[in-house]
Amino acid sequence: MKSIEIAAKTVESAVETALKELQVSREDVEVEVLEEPSKGLFGLIGSRMAKVRVTVKKTAEDLAVEFLTNVFRNMGLSVNMNCKTDNGYINISIKGTRLGILIGRRGETLDALQYLTNLAVNRKTEKRVNIILDVEGYRKRREETLNRLARRLAEKVKRTGNKVMLEPMNPHERRIIHTALQNNMDVTTYSEGEEPYRKVIIALKNAH
């Protein structure tokens, strides 16, 4: 964690100098006053400068990487992490060798780790953040697979007239299916059941 100590005539001017040096704004730091200034006797004998320690606060991204680094070390995995923040979402892409165990069946392990990371980070941040983990482009590949699956099943429903029930999926994956077919002329989609077993159903448009 970045931290510097600055002495100046007043506490305020010491903090100001520190912020300039660290190139951050007041909200991003914690200030600790090490020594209060004193004018001394007649401003001559025993006068003392103010001394502060200014520490840059950890960002949500720092907290997430710190948590994941500890988890991966204890799992015996060596990985590379790359963070990208855009409008409230922190995307962390994880690369390394033999990371299949991090994904798990249908991304179950990845989702679990993502959930735990969000809990661990949001406990400590003032503003709620949303962290999305991806391992070796898994999420992107999964999205493409689900899109193909949705189109194929829609064709089948159109051909046979019978509705099709998909396997249980998490909200994110269900949304991918709904979105893929929302403009389809022949079929409609809806979800049934309770989490975590909620499933998407694809049915003929005027059949239900």
Binding site: V71, N74, M75, G76, I101, L102, G104, E108, T109, D111, A112, L113, Y115, L116, L119
Partner: peptide
């Protein structure tokens, strides 16, 4: 038990090795 389930899931993955 959602958090417990997530912890178990990660631990299970680590134990595969």
């Amino acid at each position: 038990g959602r958090i417990a389930r997530a912890i178990r899931s990660v631990v299970k993955a680590a134990s595969l090795r």
